[in-house]
Amino acid sequence: MNINATLIGQSIAFIMFIWFTMKFVWPLLLKGMEERQARIADGLAAAEQGQKDFADAQEKSTIEINKGKEQAATIISQAQKRGDEIVEEARDLAKKESERIKESAVSEIEQEKEKARQDLRNQVATLAITGAEQILMREVDQNAHNEVLTKISKEL
């Protein structure tokens, strides 16, 4: 336990290690740590920004969705209205058409009736003449009695 030159050797080693640490270890370590600190801070800020952006986007999308829903509802109601209109129109059209058909049918029937009556009239006239001929046993001059015949057939 005596003091000897180990003292000097230790001092030299001490100075060497301090020098080495000061030159190569401390600045590098501190610089690296500071850089990383800055990077972490940036990352955190970016994450926060991202979160904010996400919230904004979510809000925006909700608004858009609501808008879309509203639009869809309007479109649907419009379509319904339009559908009702179309149905109404169709109904009107059909009514008109049916009336027209009915009218034409009625006029046709009327015509047919008229025609049938005409025929009947003619036949009745012919029958009447034939009957009269039988009764009179002679030929009835159609032209001479045309006036009468027409009168009769008109009365039928």
């Binding site: 080693a13 080495f20 270890v25 370590l29």
Partner: peptide
């Protein structure tokens, strides 16, 4: 005269300290 064991160990441990800290310092970022 020199205490070879003390000096040797102290230098060895100092070298270990320097080496490992230097290695970490180089890869720190």
């Amino acid at each position: 005269s020199f205490n070879v064991d003390s000096l040797g160990w102290s230098f060895f441990l100092g070298a270990i300290f320097s080496y490992f800290f230097y290695r970490v310092a180089r890869n720190v970022s």
